[in-house]
């Protein structure tokens, strides 16, 4: 029992991290149908910027460094949209989804390059928010930082739910994701929506990077795998679905931990992708993805 619980705790902690990254994918996908391969780099920026603000020149306290780092990440997200995505989308004749994917890949390489040159290639650790002493629950140990990740993830979900359900701007974003043309016709500024989705998604990614840095450590290339796993979680939950991203992330984390615990740790990483293949065969729209019809 204690063993199972320990695996479950590990899975939940890691799963919550995946879920936060997956949410970022879902937001941008909804607004633009772009799969943003630079999402993982937002996570890196969040973590690395906080480390740099605390340790480097500024010497800011953690409480001040966190919002600053989230803001920096959001600015990078806005800049990415303004400087790279928008010029491509606004070209006469529009642009294809593949082109946008390549642009985000280019951005991810560029961002990694910049971090590597400015902040170095070493890995860094942030202190845990409320100490390192683990909680003992029925013989299993839980890192307090894991609770922070889970808690903030839930909070984010609640805020997003409120934002999309009850806020004018949120509703406009949702409308755009369903039908861009119709949204434009009723007077929604879809360009602003796209910009906002990148800013919001980047802020989320940055937040994820900060929350997880005490657990995962942070490094200029930490975003590659987290981005990939977050993407997998987003697919698993149904691309574009917010609750799906959360469920997908947690399910992925749990599946990995249990597979590593009871089957083989050597093939743990394959588990996520085997599940994805299986889901695509059986239920291609993901766990919570709605059935979509394609417009002709």
């Amino acid at each position: 029992m204690a063993e199972f619980l320990q695996f479950a705790f590990s899975g939940l902690t890691v799963g919550a991290i995946y879920a936060l990254v997956a949410l970022g994918f879902a937001l941008i996908y909804n607004a633009s149908h772009v799969i943003n391969f630079a999402q993982g780099e937002f996570v890196t920026i969040g973590g690395m910027a906080t480390v740099a603000l605390i340790a480097g020149g500024g010497g800011l306290p953690l409480l001040l460094a966190i919002p600053t780092a989230v803001m920096i990440t959001a600015l990078v997200g806005l800049a990415l949209e303004k400087l790279a995505i928008e010029p491509a989308v606004r070209r006469p004749g529009g642009t294809s989804v593949v082109t946008l994917i390549i642009i985000t890949i280019g951005a991810s390489i560029l961002i990694r390059g910049v971090i590597q040159v400015t902040l170095g290639k070493d890995f860094h650790r942030l202190p845990a928010f409320s100490g390192e002493v683990p909680l003992d629950i029925l013989g299993a140990r839980l890192q307090p930082q894991g609770l922070w990740v889970l808690g903030v993830t839930l909070l984010v979900v609640a805020v997003l739910w409120w934002f999309f359900g009850y806020q004018r701007f949120g509703k406009a974003m949702l409308a755009t994701s369903h039908n861009r043309l119709a949204a434009q016709l009723v007077g929604i500024d879809t360009r602003l929506i796209l910009l906002a989705s990148f800013g919001l998604s980047a802020a989320l990614g940055g937040l994820a990077g900060i929350l997880t840095a005490p657990i995962t450590l942070t490094k200029y290339d930490v975003g590659i795998m987290l981005g990939l796993k977050g993407f997998a979680a987003a697919i698993l939950g149904g691309l574009g679905s917010g609750p799906g991203a959360i469920v997908g992330g947690i399910a992925l984390g749990l599946a990995e931990a249990l597979a590593a615990g009871y089957i083989s740790s050597a093939y743990k990483d394959a588990v996520a992708f085997i599940i994805i293949l299986a889901v695509l065969f059986v239920r291609p729209s993901g766990l919570l993805g709605g059935r979509t019809t394609e417009r002709v």
Binding site: S10, M225, S265, K268
Partner: peptide
């Protein structure tokens, strides 16, 4: 004999197995 991936962010599971 336990393995983790170079990008893993949590080794609790592998260590728990060794502990047990």
């Amino acid at each position: 004999d336990e393995t983790y991936a170079p990008t893993d962010t949590d080794m609790t599971v592998q260590l728990t197995k060794i502990k047990n």
